[in-house]
């Protein structure tokens, strides 16, 4: 049993270490934005797609994805004075599309995050495993795995510590600090 728990702790930790590190470093970015400079690159494209060839907004989005290199999840479609606008986004890259239904002009503004921005995007936008876009679903799957892993690593870690008899006293004090600090404050913040 001890060997099984020890291996589970090790394998799980090693498998997800880069994902956990991403969450930790992006948390620092969110807490201290001044420490990390991030400059996304923006590109703009304009071309015409005849209104006759796209009967619905979804058909237009499909056309853009199939023939104009856009990839991602189709966002909410909004009507504008001269047509419609929507977003096609994947983790770290966001394209805003405006379509003029009279002239068929398509304006696309794409913002792609750099390395620090990408870390933050992973932290913010990967929850959900049924978003309608396979890549976002996969990121979401790893968010679920990391979440489960944090709970399992905590549980297996407690088991492994408890079986290490030389660390019982110090460990008990530290665990008590964790429960008192975290647990008490959780309750205080929830009821205030």
């Amino acid at each position: 049993m001890h060997k099984l728990i020890r291996n589970l702790h090790l394998f799980l930790g090693l498998f997800l270490c880069l994902f956990v590190l991403t969450y930790a470093v992006s948390s620092l970015q969110i807490a201290y934005p001044g420490w990390f400079s991030s400059s996304p690159t923006s590109t703009e494209q304009t071309f015409v797609i005849s209104p006759d060839s796209v009967s619905t907004p979804r058909a237009l989005a499909k056309e853009l994805m199939d023939h104009h290199g856009l990839r991602g999840r189709l966002g909410e479609i909004k009507n504008t004075n001269d047509g419609l606008e929507f977003e096609i986004a994947r983790t770290g890259t966001y394209s805003k599309i405006r379509y003029n239904t009279e002239t068929g002009q398509v304006d696309i503004r794409t913002r792609a995050n750099d390395f620090p921005g990408m870390l933050r995007a992973i932290h913010f936008s990967t929850a959900g495993v049924q978003t309608g876009y396979w890549l976002k679903n996969l990121w979401g799957l790893f968010t679920v795995l990391v979440s489960i892993a944090l709970i399992l690593l905590g549980g297996t870690g407690i088991y492994l510590w408890f079986h290490n008899h030389t660390e019982r006293l110090t460990g008990t004090i530290l665990l008590a600090v964790s429960l008192a600090w975290g647990g008490t404050l959780t309750v205080l913040l929830l009821i205030a």
Binding site: S147, I148, I151, L153, G154, I158, L174, S178, G182, G183
Partner: peptide, 12 residues
């Protein structure tokens, strides 16, 4: 791990 147990469970 011991000091951060509560918060890691909450993150999960």
């Amino acid at each position: 791990g011991l000091v951060n147990l509560t918060i890691l469970l909450i993150f999960g």
